[in-house]
Design a protein around this nucleic acid. Structure first.
Lengths: 155, 155
DNA sequence: GCATATAGGACTAAAATAGTACTACTTAAG
DNA sequence: CTTAAGTAGTACTATTTTAGTCCTATATGC
C-alpha cells in the first residue's frame, strides 16, 4: 500500500550505522563499504541529511560525517522529511481549485487528516528503534488494540 | 513525505460519489462526468474496486455500479489495498537476504512495524469520513493522547 | 600548495504510474 | 433472436517520478 523510496531506506541504514558509533566520524566511502550502497548514492544521501541537520559534517582531510543529534531524538518522520521532502498524501491539497465537485473536494481534506495521523505514528519511532539499538521492541499505542487485520504477510 | 497514487485519490472520489447515493446505480460514464475523471480511467478503477468487492456491478443494459457495502464499513486501508495492492513500506522485506550487514538488517523489520501501525491508522478512517458524510470530524485514537513525542515538529 | 574530503547542482537511465484502446461477455428491449 | 448499452479483462503506450552518476567548487590539514 504505502511506500517509502529506496533512498529513504538506504538513508535509514546509513543513519543506523552512524548511530552505532555516535562519536566516530565516517567518510562517505567508508559508509558505502559498510552498507553496500554505491558511493555517489551515499554521498547524495548524506548531503540531504546534512541539510536537515540530521548529520554533522567535517570537511577536508580526516573529515567525515557524524550524527547531528542523539539517535533517540531523530524520528522516522525526520528521516522521511529529509529525504523525500514534506510531500503530502495527495496532490489535491496543493492545486485544489478544480477538484471536480464541491462535495467530493472534502475527500482531499480527509486524506490530509489521515496524513497527519500517519505522521504522528512515524514520530513515535526513533532512529534508536529503527537501528535496533533500543533493546525493547517498538511499542505503538495503536497496535495495542485488536483490529480486523486482514493480512500479516511479512515476506 | 508519504504519497498515495493519483488513482487512489480518484478512486476515493468515485467511491465518495457512490456513497452519496447508495441505492442508485451509476454507469462508468456517469461517474466520469460527475467526477471529471476520464472515462477509461474511471472504468479501470471500478473494475479494480469490483474485484475487491468494494462496489457491486450489474452488467448489460441499465447496468452500472453501486457500493458493495455500507460506506461505514469501507476503510481507507481497504481502498488503498484495492487500488495499490498490499505493497509494503520497504522492498527490503521481500528479497531481504543481502541487506548488507546483520545489524542494519533490523532496519527493514522496523519499517515493517511502522507499516503496520500506519495501516492500523488507515483502518480507523471510513469512506463516510472520507466523503465528509459522517458529520463529525475524523477521530483518531492516536491523536488523542499525548505520546512519547520526542520532538513536536508538525510541518 | 597539494591531497583528501564534503557541497552543490546538472544530467542520464530505469522503473513505476497513469492513461488508452481493444476485444469478449452479459443483459434488456424491441 | 437481434441489437444496443453496459461491464470485464487484458495488453499496450506515454508520462512522470525515482534512482543513480558525474562534474565542479570549496574547505581543511599536512
Amino acid at each position: 500500500m504505502l511506500r517509502i523510496s529506496k533512498l529513504t531506506d538506504y538513508g535509514t541504514v546509513i543513519l543506523a550505522r552512524l548511530a552505532a558509533a555516535p562519536e566516530q566520524r565516517f567518510t562517505a566511502a567508508q559508509l558505502a563499504g559498510l552498507t553496500r550502497v554505491a558511493v555517489p548514492t551515499v554521498s547524495k544521501l548524506l548531503k540531504l541529511l546534512h541539510r536537515h541537520e540530521l548529520v554533522e559534517s567535517t570537511r577536508g582531510l580526516h573529515g567525515g560525517y557524524r550524527l547531528g543529534r542523539p539517535a533517540a531524538q531523530i524520528s522516522a518522520a525526520d528521516i522521511l522529511d529529509a529525504i523525500e521532502g514534506p510531500v503530502a498524501l495527495t496532490e489535491c491539497a496543493r492545486h485544489a481549485h478544480h477538484c471536480g465537485i464541491e462535495s467530493t473536494c472534502g475527500v482531499g481534506r480527509a486524506w490530509q487528516k489521515v496524513n497527519i495521523a500517519l505522521r504522528r505514528t512515524m514520530q513515535e519511532v526513533s532512529l534508536l528503534d529503527l537501528a535496533g539499538l533500543s533493546g525493547q521492541p517498538i511499542h505503538f499505542h495503536s497496535l495495542e488494540r485488536p483490529t480486523r487485520d486482514k493480512r500479516g504477510a511479512a515476506s
